[in-house]
Simulated assay, not measured.
Amino acid sequence: MNRKARARAVLEALRRVIPRPETELRHENPYQLLVAVILSAQCTDERVNRVTPAFFEAFPTLEALAAAEPEDVYPLIRSISYPNNKAKHLVGMARMVRDAFGGEIPRTIPALQRLPGVGRKTAQVVASVAFDSEEALPVDTHVFRVAHRIGLVTDEADTPLKVERQLKRILPRKDWGEAHHLLILHGRYTCTARRPKCEACPVPPHCRYYERLQKLPPPLDGLDPGRGAFFCKTCARYFDAPVRHEDRYGVEQIACPACGSMNVFDTKTGRTTKRIKDYRV
């Protein structure tokens, strides 16, 4: 299956289980969305949604925020990550929109990126969600991880920008905004960073990560932890002090100090020590 076919199959599967793919940041207009997305950097949407009601009560309009000082904003966002910087960015953003854009949130990605606190991902989210831009396919940590795990992008796509470019080549332009939300929500609730819920996933037949998981050796029964912390199945040897080798995917694996094999098992659990390549930013 090539990546275009894989992408079509994955989006169809995700559509069946995520009927309303949309942002979980609560907002009523482009101003509120822009504030929420700036606050959401390295912070959960849930946390942002707890903060924004009081924030928008204090600063209901862009003009009100532009007239404030960062010291006025900080107490309202102190529970958000990096509140000092974000308070400065929010006030700076509001003042630039007021002074350089006539008080209207800019609609294009390049213009949005001129604003303090707005990077490429934030600009694309606002352009896509607020203005239905067909140019935007934002890549955050969830999209980056899920796109790699499933196999929608190649290993050479080692930055969010490279992932964005590869996804745009294999997905129809009309699907970019929807794909962004589908992949984010799949990564947030199913294909999670620490422990993906493969048993509840709708896309295993199309997932490269799941395919590799199935190739891991099954647990060994009857191992004796008293003879060593690890057991090498290749040379039937117990040992406590492993060496480490890199596999063909570039993942560092525990290996046997005697024969160098990576076919090693934890004697307490009986499970293989092999790890599947994963992708984080």
Rank of each mutant, 00 (worst) to 15 (best):
K162P: 03
W176P: 04
P202M: 06
E211Q: 14
N2V: 13
G177C: 08
L115W: 06
V10G: 07
V153F: 09
D155P: 13
G222R: 06
S40K: 03
H142L: 11
K233I: 09
D158E: 11
R120E: 12
A5D: 15
V17F: 05
Q42A: 11
K4F: 12
N84K: 15
K162I: 04
E63Y: 12
P116D: 06
E46C: 07
G250C: 10
V264N: 06
N84L: 15
D72L: 07
A66C: 08
P218R: 14
P138G: 05
L112E: 02
I150P: 04
A7N: 02
A200N: 14
A68T: 07
K215N: 07
K86H: 01
E104P: 02
H180V: 10
A147W: 01
V163H: 01
V37W: 03
W176K: 02
D140I: 10
T234D: 12
S133W: 03
Y279K: 06
S79A: 14
V91S: 10
G228R: 01
P218V: 13
G250L: 10
C259E: 05
F59A: 07
L137F: 11
P106G: 03
V97F: 03
K233G: 08
M1R: 06
T23Y: 02
L76R: 10
N85S: 15
N263F: 09
I184D: 01
P19F: 05
T269F: 11
